[in-house]
Each structure stands twice: as C-alpha cells, then as structure tokens.
Design a protein around this nucleic acid. Structure first.
Lengths: 198, 198
DNA sequence: TCCCGTAAGAGACGGTGCGTCTCTAATTGG
DNA sequence: CCAATTAGAGACGCACCGTCTCTTACGGGA
C-alpha cells in the first residue's frame, strides 16, 4: 500500500541514505546492503544505478556538496578576492573528514575537480580585475603562479586530513592569510608589480 | 621437514609477498589470505604482527622503500641543490601507482612523511649553504616558503596519481624546473635577494 | 479508462574473504 | 634436553558481495 518512489525522488532518498551511512560509519564500512536497508529499497535498485560502492559514494558526495563557486568575487582588492575563494575552499575541506576520505581519496579528488571546475575562470577574472585597477601590471601570470594559492590550500587539506575537520574557522583563516601574505602576494608583486603611473 | 622460518626472515618474506600482491592486484584486492598463501604461512602469523590489511600494506611499503635522503646535496648552486631533492621525490612518486594508492592514500601519506623525515633538515642546510655563498641574503625564510617546492611536487604527485607513473623522466624534470624557475626562485629572490657586496 | 511494459521492493543464493580459534610439530632459550 | 613459544595449516561462523528471481505498484499510451 505505501506508495513506491521513483526517478529523482528515489534517487535522492538513496543518496541521502548513502551520505548518512558515510557520516555514521565512514566510507570504509559503507555497504550497499546498509544503504539499501536505510533507504528501504532493494539492492538491485542501487546496482541498477551505480556499479559499485565507490561510484555510489561519489554520487552521494556530488549530491550533497553542490558546485563551489561560479562568479568571481570583486571586492576591489586582489588579496580579498583570493581570500574569499580560499576561505570557501577551506570551508569545504571540513566536509572531507578522514572517515570519508579513508579509502576514497582518488575518487573524492575527482569530484572536487568537477565541483570546482569554474575556479580557473574565476581566478582569471580576479586577476583581470586587479590589472584593470592597476593593482598589478598585467594579468598574464603563469598558470602555476595564478593557481598557486588554490593548490596550496588543497595540499593543506590533504596533508591535514586528520586535523582539518577539527580546525576552527579562525585557524583556517590564518592558514589562508599565511599562504597569501607569505607566498602568493610577494611572488605576484615580484613578477607583475603594480603599474606605476607615468 | 622443511625448516620453519622465524623472526626477521619470516617477516621479510611476508612483506615481500605483500608487496608483490600489491603490485599484481593493487591494494584494493590485497587479501590477507592471498599474502599468507604466497608467503606459505598461516593467517594467524600475519594477524599476530599487523592488525589489518592497511597496516600490513604500510609495513610492506616501508620495507620496500627506504629513507629518501639523509644528507644535503651541496653543488654550489641553490637551484641545483633543490633540483636534486625534487628529482628524487619525483622519482619516488613513480612507485605510488594508482593501484597502490587507491584506497590507501592516507596511510601512504603517513609513510612518506616518515620516510622523508630528514627533509626539513636537508632543506635548511641547503639554504644555509646558499646564504654562506652569498647567493641569498639570509637563510631565514618562512617555513612555508622554504618547503614550497617540496609541497608543490608532492601536490603534483597527488594530483596526477593516475598519470604520474607513466610520465617520462624528462617530463618530471620539466615540472621540477617549472616549480623552481617560475615560482620558487623568483619568490626567494623577492624575499631574500643576494647580498650585495659593499 | 484500461492495459501492459517497466521498474520497485524484497529476499534467496553461492561465493569470497574476514578474523578467531584450534591443533600439531618445529625451533630455541635456559 | 626439556619447556615455552610460535610457525604452519586449516576449520569455523559471519558479513557482505553481486546476481537472480518473484511479486506488485506505477504510469504512459491507446
């Protein structure tokens, strides 16, 4: 008698169940049977959609965490613009707990890449804005330099998987500030210091 | 009648068997039973030593890959010294195949940290040498700056797990050179440019 | 409105590997 | 040379896998 779920509704239920299982037991102990039971459906319904545990987990992550950022912030300061992007990324890192990552890191890596596919464009825009303001001489920084803060915050997230989830927001901001002020801005100024008027 | 192995000998046999299994099937399909069979011993012998699959794999990695570097290179050039360290690290990255890392990344991360525990000292020495030569003004770079190339090469290894193992030695050197020439050296020169005589 | 194809929900099934336990016999330290 | 240790081998129950079968609700097309 209870109505049977289908399509999107069913899929959402399953993915939420999977996410809940991951939160409770970690990816390691995520089982198809467990998810099916929690979602009150059959295993076949899951196997019909995802070929294995890992793909299911990836789908659950994708379903839970939407795209990171689409439009470039424009605060009028290069540092602040980057700061906003990095702080967002650091916030996301909080979701990547050891329990989630343990045994799933390569897949998660793929998802984060997908979720943040807009970032290169955003960064490019931020740099163009800064150049237009005259804050830097030009926006043609080497790819590796432009993406440096992003790479470093991602690296930081990987390196500190264990601790990152417990780090306070303030500490995360300290790391972000350190990356910007100690590494990135000095480098950018060395490579493309401000255009000096006349 | 066949003599029974014990202690170090037995342990080495097991770890080599485990490493072989990882090479053949990847960590994902590494099984305690498989290792025991290959090493011609009982499961209990393994469980007596390592609590689980992951720990066994970690021990096998540690057993196979020794410490990375102990003494600092001293070529007379800051760039060359760093280059040598990075090239070594890139070479190691070749062992971290997707099959190995898949499902074991956090543990591997721990092992690499242990294996390269001498690196901070090495880097410090390299910088002191450069300062002594007058190549840079002083060796008191912020930790994050001094370690920047290492972090970047590690990050590169993580990001490109899938491809890294197939990358030619020449390509790896290009990445290393890019990190040094585009990012690190400009930054160091901006922060601690050469002492000017007189 | 009815009817039929599709897929949900439920669970049986054999298979694999886990982690524990038991047993015998080789080895070694005292 | 005896006693404690532990290697080597495999049985055991268990959890979960991935496949399959079966019934039944749903919903789109005529």
């Amino acid at each position: 008698m209870p109505s049977r779920r289908r399509g999107e509704e069913l899929e959402a239920t399953i993915l939420e169940a999977a996410w809940a299982e991951i939160q409770e037991h970690g990816y390691n102990r995520l089982t198809i049977e467990g998810v099916a039971a929690r979602a009150q459906t059959g295993k076949q319904v899951l196997y019909r959609r995802w070929p294995n545990r890992a793909q299911l987990a990836v789908a659950a992550i994708r379903h839970t965490l939407g795209p990171l950022l689409t439009a470039a912030p424009d605060t009028g300061s290069l540092r602040e613009d980057y700061f906003i992007v990095l702080r967002l990324m650091a916030g996301r890192a909080r979701h990547y707990t050891p329990e989630l990552l343990h045994g799933l890191m390569p897949e998660v890596w793929g998802v984060t890449g997908e979720i943040s596919s807009a970032l290169p464009g955003v960064i490019d825009q931020i740099l163009r804005n800064a150049a237009a303001r005259g804050e830097i001489a030009h926006a043609d920084l080497p790819e590796r330099v432009a993406m440096l803060p992003l790479d470093l915050i991602r690296y930081e997230g990987m390196r500190n998987v264990v601790k990152w989830a417990e780090i306070t927001e303030g500490d995360a901001e300290k790391v972000v500030a350190d990356i910007l002020d100690t590494v990135f801005l000095p480098l950018v100024m060395a490579l493309a210091g401000p255009a000096k008027p006349g």
